[in-house]
Write a protein that binds this DNA or RNA. Structure first.
Lengths: 156, 156
DNA sequence: ATTATTTAATTAATATGTTAATTATTCACA
DNA sequence: TGTGAATAATTAACATATTAATTAAATAAT
């Protein structure tokens, strides 16, 4: 059946792997009333204290238009706050509230544990080759636009 | 900066790789008024002629509730048609129309070409190790539910 | 200094993802 | 043979993705 070629294409394998891996994490997030994207934002803010909207979009891989809504909902839950830059009124900084920071000690250990189990179940060599493969594909496709609304200066 | 650990986690690397790879394909799809998901459905129907809704969800990795809308819109564009099974009135089969089939010769060569370029730019060994890594991760996470609304009988 | 350009965040419109519930059939079995 | 459980597709409600357009502020060039 020639359909196997399609199912084993790089994009479909990437989607399959995500479908295999993510449900167990989303289950944890949902226990704390968080979505996957909300988790990603908090995960970054727990380490960086104060991050610009642009950086946040870039690091979390959440497209800017989506991130607006994600932060809106995190704000309404009083987990993060926006703060406009004083030096450049266009920029917005985001930081976790006390309530947002308190979530870390409850959620993160659960996630770390599941992630450790996952990694432990994969041969170290296979894991490293997987990462090397990602790096090569990403490097090859380079400055092809990421979805964070950055300009593409390569193919104009 | 400890943020690198997060950015190099398996899920984030999967998302990064998709962000690097997919835009060039979506650009082609959009030229023909297709979304990525519509492409996937057609890609399957061009080879299989007549596929059940359930199989379609499973092969395209489109969650059943999303697939309903995808097929609705493909139907309105007269590219596919639904057909209820006579033997089991619950089941729905989907097939491409003449118009839908005629798209193949125009779209698919463009996609095949870009895909070949992508694959050619990656070392064969790296590519194979990447696929092997996917297989191992997927096998490890096994019957953990895929998002096609199938029942999970492992952790009840 | 003024205007054109660029940048940062946002809005808008539409499509899809996620999770739970629903409806219509079919199946198993008392 | 009728009734409850299981299955297939769908709907519902909400969140996010995609693409293009918009708004506000800062910069560059005149």
């Amino acid at each position: 059946m020639a359909m196997q070629m399609f199912s084993r294409s790089l994009p479909m394998m990437l989607y399959s792997t995500l479908d295999a891996v993510m449900p167990r994490f989303r289950k944890i997030f949902n226990e704390f009333g968080l979505t996957e994207q909300q988790w990603r934002v908090l995960r970054v803010l727990w380490e960086a204290e104060n991050v610009s909207f642009h950086e946040l979009a870039s690091i979390t891989l959440i497209p800017a238009p989506s991130l607006v809504g994600v932060i809106d909902r995190l704000s309404q839950s009083a987990l993060v706050e926006r703060r406009r830059s004083e030096t450049d009124r266009r920029k917005v900084f985001v930081h976790a509230t006390k309530k947002g920071n308190e979530l870390e000690s409850r959620v993160r250990p659960r996630v770390v544990r599941v992630y450790a189990e996952l990694q432990a179940s994969i041969d170290t060599e296979v894991w490293e080759q997987l990462m090397a493969g990602f790096d090569q594909v990403i490097a090859t496709c380079q400055p092809a636009e990421s979805n964070t609304n950055q300009k593409n200066t390569t193919d104009i």
